[in-house]
Design a protein around this nucleic acid. Structure first.
Lengths: 205, 205
DNA sequence: ATGCGATATTTTGTATACAATTTATTGGCT
DNA sequence: AGCCAATAAATTGTATACAAAATATCGCAT
């Protein structure tokens, strides 16, 4: 419940969390709430300052600059492993998801595109079959949800993203693991570049 | 305190943790103990099975096979960044640490070697200056401490490790980031190979 | 003797109560 | 009026108490 509220921005980055009030709001007592907060703290979604309170974490552009290259490595590795392990059935499943991406992009449906994109990356991770890699990526992805920047809304970014996905599919079909890794890395780093453009624009306004 | 007890094997992998008994033993009540267990759970050091209890996590060789390649990537990246950012002063500090490694290796002092090795890798991480990268590596390193395998005790492994460190220092001095990354990756993967040899030997016995 | 079922005990999960510390408020002083 | 100190309120951290569920024990029948 807490994670949901943080992701939905009902609890805003930087905001202080009053335990009594939050517990009452969630309809539970402080004991389980505090246990939940400790977990979120370990995940990096909140920061606990002893004796001072609990605050929703904030991601600066600097954090994104550090996190995206790591994501690029990890997801790149996923693409590499997936390319090695993808059988015909799995490729078909990925193709089907990619088709959906193409459709939602054509319809300019950003929300659905994000949704399917998420499913696609997840499918790839399962294919790669490295549970710890999945775990690490999952942790970082949760963190990234703190920054509500949706780079796809940028002019032309959705088309770029789609092109990167096409290149990835080509590499997977060609069983070219190195190419898949490379494409995926670029895909993630391109997102970072887009985010930079967005924040630059926001600061200008 | 809990982490210490897990690392020192006072609490063994797979062992069930009785909350009341542990709390009494630590001289605290169940409330803060449970909060601590939730944190350890998020870190992967324990597994909480709802309504059934808390168990110290176990790392199989399969887990190590998955984790080490990730560590290789992350630490490789650290080496890359560190090579770019290392100034003369920082290089001197690393040299001093490396000297200690040489000394402890010559004295066959495995424990001190591990200790200094830890400090060395930490110094490199600070140099690289990516907090999130440091965070991720730290998380994985904590996990690895669950497996009490100390590959340096293997015949010749310490000399190999030392040689890898020498190659790393050379790359750092030469400001060759790509070489540093490559050496570091190999260093981590060589550890995995050593661990494989160890477990194979253990299973034979 | 062994397996099953009902009861008793233990153990986890949650709520409440209290202690310790921090933050807010009030009154007095310059 | 503004600032500081002392006190009051609120908030975090911990302990205890209770509810719900799982595990263990005991008795009974086969």
């Amino acid at each position: 419940m807490l994670r949901q509220r943080i992701f939905s921005q009902a609890l805003r980055p930087g905001q202080r969390l009053d335990e009594a009030a939050l517990a009452a709001d969630l309809g539970i007592s402080r004991t389980p709430l505090r246990e939940a907060l400790k977990i979120l703290s370990a995940e990096g979604l909140v920061h606990i300052k002893p004796r001072r309170g609990c605050f929703v974490a904030e991601l600066t552009l600097d954090d994104l600059e550090e996190i995206f290259p790591i994501m690029a490595m990890l997801e790149g590795r996923v693409a590499f492993e997936a390319a090695l392990k993808a059988g015909p059935d799995e490729l078909k499943r990925l193709d089907a998801l990619h088709e959906k991406l193409e459709k939602h992009a054509a319809a300019r449906d950003v929300d659905r595109y994000y949704e399917v994109n998420y499913v696609f990356h997840n499918a790839l991770q399962e294919l790669a079959g490295n549970r710890w890699l999945q775990h690490m990526i999952g942790d970082l992805r949760k963190l990234l949800r703190l920054s509500r920047h949706r780079s796809l809304k940028l002019e032309g970014r959705q088309q770029e993203s789609l092109a990167e996905h096409r290149a990835l599919m080509a590499a997977l079909h060609g069983r070219d693991a190195a190419a898949a890794e490379d494409v995926m890395k670029r895909h993630l780093l391109a997102q970072l570049v887009a985010l930079r453009r967005m924040t630059a624009r926001q600061e200008a306004a």
